[in-house]
């Protein structure tokens, strides 16, 4: 039988596809925001942690992940970026194929883990791995600093998903810590971006190569 979790997880996988397929920054941010909402709602559907604290915690992460972080980045690009297009190093067809390969590979690797907590959610591990590697792919494939940040957030979503499998109370603390780190990171990024922008008139990271000397 199909669990609700699996449907949510398929949506997560779909959001990775969308993030690969889109080449406009605003769309990419929306996709990552959507992904944040879906990922942080996963524990609600898992059903093993429905205390008031758990729900409140999940809603808080949802708020940060789905609203605050995307909003921060959106405001940042409003301020600094001139161009809305992010040009990936790879082409559209290549990224589609890469996505397919990613899904297959993560399904393979996900099957290797044999954690008792996730045994009734066949999709959880593959999705988490797809998020991690997908984020890596975004990081690698883009020259634009903001797109790279988004890739980093995607990886963080993956880590969060792995975290949900450990259903102990300590995970909240660890999770929250990571999330705050990311939030701080995003803030710092906004500042640095402005500096890069002032210096180079663009946010293309390949320009940083000139700092080598």
């Amino acid at each position: 039988m199909i669990h609700l979790v699996d449907i949510v997880l398929s949506l997560v996988l779909l959001s990775i596809l969308l993030s690969f397929g889109s080449n406009r920054l605003a769309v990419l941010i929306k996709v990552i925001g959507f992904q944040g909402v879906v990922v942080s709602s996963v524990p609600l559907f898992m059903g093993h942690d429905l205390s008031a604290f758990g729900i409140a915690f999940s809603l808080a992460t949802l708020l940060i992940r789905g609203m605050i972080i995307p909003l921060c980045i959106y405001l940042a690009i409003k301020k600094v970026a001139i161009r809305q297009e992010v040009e990936p190093i790879y082409g559209h067809h290549a990224s589609m194929l890469a996505w397919l390969g990613l899904i297959v590979a993560s399904a393979f690797i996900g099957g290797k883990f044999n954690l008792p907590a996730i045994n009734n959610h066949a999709l959880l591990m593959p999705t988490a791995i797809a998020l991690l590697t997908g984020g890596m792919f975004l990081l690698m494939g883009h020259r634009n600093a903001i797109a790279m940040v988004l890739g980093y957030i995607m990886m963080e979503n993956g880590i969060y998903l792995v975290g949900t499998t450990f259903s102990t109370s300590t995970r909240h603390i660890v999770e929250f810590g990571i999330l705050l780190d990311v939030l701080a990171g995003v803030m710092i990024m906004a500042v640095i971006l402005q500096n890069i922008k002032q210096q180079f008139d663009d946010v293309d990271t390949s320009l940083l190569r000139t700092l080598k000397e």
């Binding site: 699996d6 397919l100 899904i103 399904a107 066949a122 999709l123 593959p126």
Partner: peptide
């Protein structure tokens, strides 16, 4: 393709 892989996981 995605639907096929996901379903097979299920």
């Amino acid at each position: 393709f995605f639907a096929t892989i996901i379903t097979l996981e299920f």
